[in-house]
Design a protein around this nucleic acid. Structure first.
Lengths: 197, 197, 197, 197
DNA sequence: AATGAATGAGGATTCATTCAT
DNA sequence: GATGAATGAATCCTCATTCAT
């Protein structure tokens, strides 16, 4: 019963407390990749392994499966917010950034559209509306009427619709379909690319 | 898909000769319900239990997880095909039936939009394009140009987009959003209801 | 993600449904031994291994840790009840059987006295009072006043006290201490042995 | 053991020179509380957290789980010894102090009665007999014959028996049962309270 | 001397799948 | 044909213990 008695061959490793921030970032990056490859329901152990840390570290930083996904999404949303807040930002420009994240991040899509009834992702969806609202707020400030959408409600519906169209094995294919979707909606979209200052 | 009789009645006792067919139907109905409640990744044991049969029966009828989901989808697609083939069918009418299935069947949505990278649903998606093509074919025959979509490719993209918009806890909410989505696309949709010969 | 894909080398085993009862009995017997050797908190996996079954079987028969312990205790209590119900039963005779179980079954003692605050055994203790009441009922019918105890409350307190005295590495030592405890209480106890018809 | 100041005050900031002694005391107090709430098997991390120190400090002061429990028990035993050594001490008075510790300290009870086979507490039990002997020695000097017990062996058996009776969710309930147990044994017990010089 | 992050083995639990009856 | 028990690998999660800072 003595828990974990094996204390013979201790491996070295332990880069001290400063590694914490680095590990957290590595976990989020690993999660993004794993999600893209295996979906939101992928084993957490795989994320830890890809990040090069023990499983305990993952649990130290994220109490549960939902927290990991939320951390990944948080980054996506933050980039959209930054793009919206940048000086000279336009609706089409922000939508370009948003579209880039839709085509790039399986978690982002998964979050919005993956089977909402999957019990394993319940916790994720619980936070989704809050994140969604932040995206809406970012877009709202740039609504100018140069398109067929009536308001930010229409705009968020349109975002959902575009994300529904984003399928395909490669990012290029997904981008092609995303742009076709925006075209059907009569909305102009700027360069599809991540936000960079 | 509540049109299909819910298989709650426990098998009486002995099995008649056509028990096999009855069991298959019960399994599909049970799977539809389970998928709606717990997602495509739900335990197969729960489907067998809900159908009132042993787990062995499930495996007799369906070799694997994908086969179960495909059987459920097959029914959805067949109804759309029947609606399209009915005399007097119009595009908006068929889209109404299609929309009904989108709002009703979590599996149908899940199939088209759930995280395609989820390994558990790989086998399902393998058949998805075939089913999707059958839906496209059904719609193609009714394309008449009275809308902004250029062809059946555009139409299938639109279907994907609408399915992306279909979210929400109740069927009513999902229908509301689906109709809003079609409106944004400028496509007229008939009564949202299952096909009934 | 596909769960448990390894379906290559299938091992034979599977004695059919009739093994169920045998397995349940084997699990209880194994649990009794394991509890005696390692305490109520011992790994369930060890119990399954000792019983010669897979871990899943344990969970099929017992939903959780508490259910296993309760099943073990249930047997102890049942023997006491049977001893009490036997024709010609006397209080000292029933106490002899009860004492035998106290000295023999680590789980029985553990249940009544092990660290009540141990979170792992919470569920066990939840049922303990019900079992304890059954023991009290069994003894009650034989209260005759030939001793210093006032009623079944006193008697149950005395049982608890004796169980507190039952310590030691061997059954013989535990029996010696149990008898000394009864003597201090001025209660006559019959032969310390399991009930046998 | 609430007589010991609960170590809730977080260390201010820097550590003075005698921080070590303060930390040790805080750890023991924290352990006592944790043991009372969660049993002897509670996570060590929780003890360190409650004491307001890092986990490393716990290991600096106590090499293993057993050392922590032994330190807690050491305090209980020491109080009994002090009560016995006080001028004017009587057997019933010392038993009152002993009884107070039995009703107050889950670790004390747990130590004496918790499932001795629980591998997690092996190390603790290894020291138990030594501590137990110290208690016996303390009582021995006050044996006067005014009761039914024959010697210190009987007395220690009686202590074990009383501890077996000490159950219940509140200290009051535990005290009530302890007193009833002593009464059944025909032993007079003084005021149930901690020793205070 | 203290901190608290990291490791990683251990134990709990769940299910896909098989198969004797 | 149907049943449902059994298997056991996979995954989740927890903690004892170490150690860089």
């Amino acid at each position: 019963m003595t828990q974990h008695p094996t204390a013979e061959e201790r491996r070295p490793a332990n880069d001290g407390p400063k590694a914490a921030a680095r590990n957290r970032a590595a976990l989020i990056a690993a999660a993004r990749e794993i999600y893209a490859e295996h979906g939101l329901g992928a084993p957490l152990s795989g994320i830890a392994r890809r990040a090069g840390v023990g499983q305990g570290v993952l649990y130290r930083h994220f109490p549960d499966r939902a927290a990991v996904a939320n951390a990944v999404l948080e980054e996506n949303v933050r980039e959209v917010e930054q793009a919206a807040a940048a000086s000279g930002a336009t609706l089409s420009g922000v939508l370009g950034v948003l579209t880039w994240h839709l085509t790039e991040s399986a978690a982002f899509i998964g979050l919005l559209h993956a089977d909402r009834t999957d019990d394993r992702t319940d916790g994720v969806h619980a936070h989704a509306s809050a994140l969604s609202e932040r995206v809406a707020r970012s877009l709202r400030g740039h609504l100018t009427g140069g398109h067929r959408l009536g308001g930010s409600d229409d705009l968020m519906l349109a975002v959902a619709m575009v994300s529904g169209a984003v399928t395909g094995p490669t990012r290029e294919e997904r981008e092609r379909r995303a742009l076709a979707a925006w075209r059907l909606l009569g909305v102009e979209v700027g360069a599809v690319r991540p936000f960079a200052g």
